[in-house]
Amino acid sequence: MTSDNDRRRGLLARLRGRPGAPSRGRRRLGAAVRLVAALMLAGGAYTVLAPGAAAQENPPLSTAAADGKALFDVSCVTCHGRNAQGVEGRGPSLIGVGAASVEFQVGTGRMPMARQEAQAARKPEVFTRDEIDQLAAYIQELGGGPVVPAGDNLHADGNVAIGGELYRINCSQCHAFSGGGGALSSGKYAPSLAPATDRQIYAAMLSGPQNMPVFGDNQITPEQKADIIAYIQQTLKDDGDPGGLFNLGRYGPSTEGVAIFLVGIVALVFASLWIAGKS
């Protein structure tokens, strides 16, 4: 939350320093931002209501956000519409989804989508880190919303034991005990956590991309999020498998069953062919 406010203060400072900006607008923007911040502190549950006032007034944007808008108008506008209001049947409104959502969707290459599908898949990113930040700033200033705290390592003081418990209650049902992901209904799926960075996991929890439920800071505190990320990064990903050089994808009994036939039975049938063969 503190980093959130810092960022906002920075934005305001930049806006104040801009010559010729109408003071009424500035005040109104300040009010809107304060409102957003207050709402987020209260739980962020009603952030959706807040942007209406801000967006309709078309307040001036920060430099970064203006650059972001330029990017938005060439890459995203087809589906998400002018001012990110959404296009019926193509793309949802982005008002209020926050920088976290942009960071997740664009940062993992899911957006821009190549075509309409059941679910956007992870792809190589189209935008650079700076461009993503600009887009995020634009969406953030349009409608507010959750923001991922600064820094690349968000699990520095995470506790893997607590994180593991939280992971099993909240995450494993879709992403599996091993973080490999799993199927959802009708072609949708929970992706593997293997390529995800700290910031992306954090952003996903905050924003609830696609069919993933939202795990806001009200439900899972930032400290608990750090614990979960620590569990994913340190235990699920960095910790080697003590049980063998091959972990069979950690898919559980299905690949173990394949292995016993492809390795065990095949090897032993060859052995028996040799033993009983004419020498």
């Binding site: 739980g43 549950a45 959706v48 439920p213 439900q219």
Partner: peptide
């Protein structure tokens, strides 16, 4: 509390 879960969220 009701405020502990965001819209689109779930909790056990």
């Amino acid at each position: 509390r009701p405020a502990d879960i965001s819209a689109g969220g779930q909790i056990t």
